[in-house]
Computed example of a mutant assay.
Amino acid sequence: MAPVIVCVGLTTIDIAQVVDALPAADSKITADRAWLDVGGPAANAARVAHREGCQVRLVTALGDSSLAMLARERLDGIEIIDIAPPDCQLPVSTIFITPDGSRAVVSRNAAALESAGSPGAEVLKDVDVVLHDGHLLEASLLLAQNPAPIQVLDGGSWKPGLELLLPLLDVAVVSADFALPGSTPDQALDDLAGFGIPRLARSRGAEPVQAMIGEQLGIFPVPQVEAVDTTGAGDVLHGSLIAQLAGGIDFTAALRNAITQASESVTHYGVL
């Protein structure tokens, strides 16, 4: 039986355009290429885990708009638990990608979602790993109360109320910019360890990944590649990591493999 994963959090529609440089005020530029796809940390991680052979349930907020219909098509093969009201407006992200592979993103994320329902307990049936991106915190808090699956945080940025979720986690993998209120990104692993999270990692783009397993510190090299598009590299890291954890691979080996997958993902346009 395939490992079962639940991803909790944001789905967006991404409009990506490759440009020579970011547009200046009151200017118009021509993109070299453009595409439309599903995005969002939880949705992207779900797609990666599904690609790696897992059975995936995505707890997210879609609604009934035409954009939500498009998202459902792109999430084919993933079980969707939609906790949004029908009139929910699915967030749209605009992404500009420059020749060095860097990207600039404009998005409302979950800011427009005024209310969301609660997933039922059946979502956790036979689940091996639950991933939280923090955008649907109430749903995450409900599902993290169950101690059976491995509870993982995708910490792209700090979100209000996240301190309630942290003590319930088994793993947290955060970005280079993640910081607790009143602290700095360089202190993130120490700060998170203070919440009792036993396995931690901090990605830093092309720089080595920092890790803390118990009281042991580690550095995990990142393969050096020619970056074309860094969009969603962190989501690939999380999706690959949870797929391997769900398959019974230990955290150290899973993290090394996930780093390789994330590095490969920046060598082409798009997340998948």
Rank of each mutant, 00 (worst) to 15 (best):
residue 1 M to K: 04
residue 1 M to T: 08
residue 8 V to Q: 07
residue 8 V to N: 06
residue 12 T to C: 14
residue 13 I to M: 12
residue 16 A to E: 14
residue 18 V to K: 15
residue 18 V to F: 14
residue 21 A to K: 14
residue 21 A to L: 09
residue 25 A to N: 04
residue 27 S to N: 02
residue 29 I to M: 12
residue 30 T to L: 13
residue 30 T to V: 14
residue 30 T to P: 01
residue 30 T to A: 14
residue 31 A to C: 12
residue 31 A to Y: 03
residue 32 D to W: 03
residue 32 D to E: 13
residue 32 D to K: 14
residue 33 R to G: 09
residue 34 A to T: 04
residue 34 A to C: 07
residue 35 W to E: 11
residue 36 L to C: 11
residue 40 G to L: 11
residue 41 P to F: 05
residue 43 A to H: 07
residue 48 V to W: 03
residue 49 A to Q: 05
residue 49 A to R: 05
residue 52 E to W: 11
residue 55 Q to A: 13
residue 57 R to W: 00
residue 57 R to H: 03
residue 60 T to Q: 08
residue 62 L to F: 04
residue 64 D to V: 02
residue 65 S to V: 02
residue 67 L to P: 00
residue 67 L to S: 12
residue 68 A to T: 01
residue 73 E to R: 13
residue 74 R to Q: 14
residue 83 I to W: 01
residue 84 A to R: 05
residue 86 P to C: 00
residue 92 V to E: 06
residue 94 T to F: 10
residue 96 F to H: 14
residue 100 D to N: 15
residue 104 A to C: 12
residue 105 V to C: 15
residue 105 V to R: 07
residue 107 S to T: 15
residue 107 S to F: 02
residue 112 A to N: 14
residue 116 A to Y: 08
residue 118 S to G: 01
residue 119 P to L: 07
residue 122 E to V: 03
residue 123 V to I: 12
residue 127 V to W: 04
residue 128 D to L: 00
residue 128 D to F: 06
residue 131 L to W: 04
residue 133 D to C: 07
residue 136 L to G: 02
residue 137 L to M: 13
residue 138 E to L: 06
residue 140 S to H: 05
residue 143 L to R: 07
residue 150 I to V: 15
residue 159 K to R: 15
residue 162 L to F: 11
residue 164 L to M: 07
residue 166 L to F: 14
residue 167 P to N: 08
residue 168 L to M: 15
residue 168 L to F: 00
residue 170 D to S: 13
residue 171 V to S: 06
residue 173 V to T: 12
residue 174 V to N: 10
residue 176 A to Y: 01
residue 176 A to M: 02
residue 177 D to S: 13
residue 178 F to N: 08
residue 180 L to C: 11
residue 183 S to F: 06
residue 184 T to F: 05
residue 185 P to L: 12
residue 188 A to M: 05
residue 188 A to S: 15
residue 190 D to G: 03
residue 190 D to P: 00
residue 193 A to K: 13
residue 196 G to W: 05
residue 200 L to G: 01
residue 200 L to T: 07
residue 202 R to H: 05
residue 202 R to S: 04
residue 203 S to T: 15
residue 204 R to N: 14
residue 205 G to D: 10
residue 206 A to S: 15
residue 207 E to S: 15
residue 210 Q to G: 07
residue 211 A to F: 02
residue 212 M to E: 06
residue 213 I to N: 12
residue 213 I to K: 02
residue 215 E to F: 00
residue 217 L to P: 05
residue 218 G to L: 12
residue 219 I to N: 07
residue 222 V to F: 10
residue 224 Q to F: 03
residue 225 V to F: 09
residue 225 V to K: 10
residue 229 D to A: 06
residue 233 A to G: 08
residue 234 G to Y: 09
residue 235 D to L: 08
residue 235 D to F: 01
residue 240 S to M: 12
residue 242 I to R: 11
residue 245 L to P: 13
residue 250 D to Q: 13
residue 251 F to P: 14
residue 251 F to W: 13
residue 253 A to W: 00
residue 254 A to V: 09
residue 256 R to G: 09
residue 258 A to N: 12
residue 259 I to E: 09
residue 259 I to R: 08
residue 262 A to N: 08
residue 263 S to F: 12
residue 264 E to C: 06
residue 265 S to I: 07
residue 265 S to E: 07
residue 271 V to M: 08
